Simulated scan of single mutants.
Amino acid sequence: ADLPEHPALVRAAVRRGTHDLSVQAAMSLDEAQALILSGAALARRAIDDGADVLIPGEMGIGNTTPAAAITARLLNLDAAQVTGRGTGVDDARLAYKVTVIRAALERTPTTDPLEVLAQFGGFEIAAMLGVMLQAAAMRRAVILDGFVEGSAALIGVALAPHLRAYLFPAGQCAEIGHAAQLAHLHLTPMFHLNLRLGEGTGGVLAAPLLLGAAATLREMRTFAEAGVPGA
């Protein structure tokens, strides 16, 4: 649906939703690149306004399906190994979800990161990828929250390996594919709270931990600096 005008709302969608990934490419390469650039523009604006840490988040129903397809392809895993229940579907719907993702994976053999994004990704995944890449380019930290965000990070690190150094994972979420993403990226989550929502919620919880750690490194004296005897 069309959302009402709001000064904080940026309209970047190229159309109303992606195509059915099980039968055709979710979007064109041009559309994927346009959305990456839109995400990058948002990141630049936030950083220009003083942001030190960016927390990409997403909202949507069904977007663990494209995230699982991206994860399966880039990690060379079967769909069942990375496909979870999303909003809590029953066994029958989970089995169907795996079937849909397998159909998408069988439809195209591509392993090129941008092509994988265009074939399987959601618009929000492309936009979050742009946020992450721009943040790394401007040397800003990214708190990585959740499975859908993780799929964008997999593409980002495949395109620009230096991005990994700017990623700070929040919690390992309940989606089974998230652990595989973090292992592939060699990232250790800050907590295990079995969160499922995504949408940046875990990232917001992790922000005080990251900021506190940074303050400790920046401001806390060593024993020698503090004059502790015997240090």
Rank of each mutant, 00 (worst) to 15 (best):
P161H: 14
E219V: 13
S151F: 05
L114C: 02
R11L: 09
G200A: 06
G146P: 09
E5R: 11
P113E: 04
M220P: 04
L193I: 09
L21Y: 05
L167W: 08
R45I: 04
E124Y: 03
M190P: 02
Q24V: 13
R16A: 15
M190T: 01
Y96R: 14
E219W: 13
G57N: 07
A231H: 00
H19K: 05
G86D: 05
G86Y: 11
D49P: 01
Q81M: 06
A79C: 10
M220I: 03
P7K: 13
P229E: 14
A183T: 08
A69M: 02
I143H: 04
G50R: 05
H186N: 12
L77R: 03
G177A: 10
A25R: 01
L29H: 05
T201Y: 13
L9C: 08
M190N: 04
E58P: 02
T65F: 10
T111F: 12
V10P: 02
D20K: 07
G146S: 09
M59W: 00
T99I: 13
L77F: 01
G177E: 05
L114D: 03
G150K: 08
V204G: 09
A32S: 14
T108A: 13
I143Y: 01
G50P: 10
L187M: 07
V53N: 10
R164Q: 08
L159F: 11
I47K: 07
G121M: 03
Q172M: 11
A160H: 14
M190K: 00
V98T: 15
A68R: 04
L185M: 11
E219R: 15
P113V: 10
V100F: 09
V23I: 03
G177F: 08
D30E: 15
F147S: 14
Q119Y: 07
A68C: 05
L9K: 09
A183Q: 10
D30T: 15
D91W: 03
H178V: 15
A51H: 12
G57L: 13
A179T: 13
A26G: 02
A80R: 03
T216P: 06
N63T: 13
L187N: 00
L37E: 12
Q134H: 05
G62V: 00
A127P: 09
